[in-house]
């Protein structure tokens, strides 16, 4: 398809994210770049596996009505994904700039995913976007996620989100409580998962 690569938006750890155009529509092009530091064989396995996983999980999340970008194309050879453009800020930046993010809502979306066995795998505040004008959210980057996840892996999801809040925000626990509040509404086995969260915290070094 005729794809125009207009400007690079971010250079993440694994991928270049470009703003582009396709049939007069704004698109996001996510290109997983070769990592020169990694063994070429290992690098290829990881990039292919992750892009495939990402497309699959985003599609599944969409059927659960969890806000994710629409996927327009997946090219495994070039390891690139073409997705709907979502105008919003990282939740991390929103919280820092005192923009009112709906953490309870975020928690309820995570609960929906977990209820169906889907985990995100890198659930930090950089991977959830928020559009202040429309008050809508968007979950991105599912490449470390899994379907058919164990409750322990779901616990890791929540643990990562809590860590992400702790590492940047001043009152992290209050924020996390809101997430849990929403989570409890949509995940029927939330207590089991929360037990795992505690277990993972304990297992972590120096706690």
């Amino acid at each position: 398809m005729e794809l125009e690569w207009n400007e690079i938006i971010t250079r993440g750890a694994e991928a270049e994210v470009w703003k582009g155009e396709w049939r007069n529509r704004e698109m996001i092009i996510k290109k997983r770049v070769k990592k020169g530091y990694r063994h070429p064989k290992l690098d290829e396995i990881i990039r292919k596996k992750r892009i495939r996983k990402e497309a699959k999980l985003i599609t599944e999340a969409r059927t659960l009505e969890v806000p994710v970008p629409i996927i327009y194309d997946l090219n495994e050879t070039e390891t690139l994904l073409v997705m709907e453009y979502f105008q919003g800020e990282r939740v991390m930046d929103c919280i820092e700039n005192d923009i009112d993010v709906d953490l309870k809502k975020i928690g309820s979306y995570i609960g929906k995913l977990h209820q169906e066995g889907i985990t995100h795998g890198d659930l930090t505040t950089s991977n959830i976007l928020f559009d202040e004008r429309t008050k809508s959210h968007c979950f991105i980057d599912f490449s470390l996620g899994e379907n058919d996840s164990s409750k322990e892996i779901m616990g890791v999801d929540l643990h990562l989100l809590r860590e992400a809040l702790v590492s940047v925000h001043e009152e992290p626990l209050k924020l996390f409580e809101k997430v849990v509040e929403g989570y409890e509404e949509t995940c029927s086995f939330h207590q089991d998962v929360m037990n795992w969260v505690e277990d993972i915290e304990r297992r972590g070094r120096y706690r």
């Binding site: 971010t10 250079r11 750890a13 694994e14 990592k35 990694r38 930090t124 950089s126």
Partner: peptide, 18 residues
């Protein structure tokens, strides 16, 4: 070495980006 050091490098790069 190839596997574990690539993991360390990856998380270091993630922290840089984050």
């Amino acid at each position: 070495q190839e596997t574990t050091f690539a993991m360390l490098t990856e998380v270091t790069e993630r922290a840089l980006a984050h």
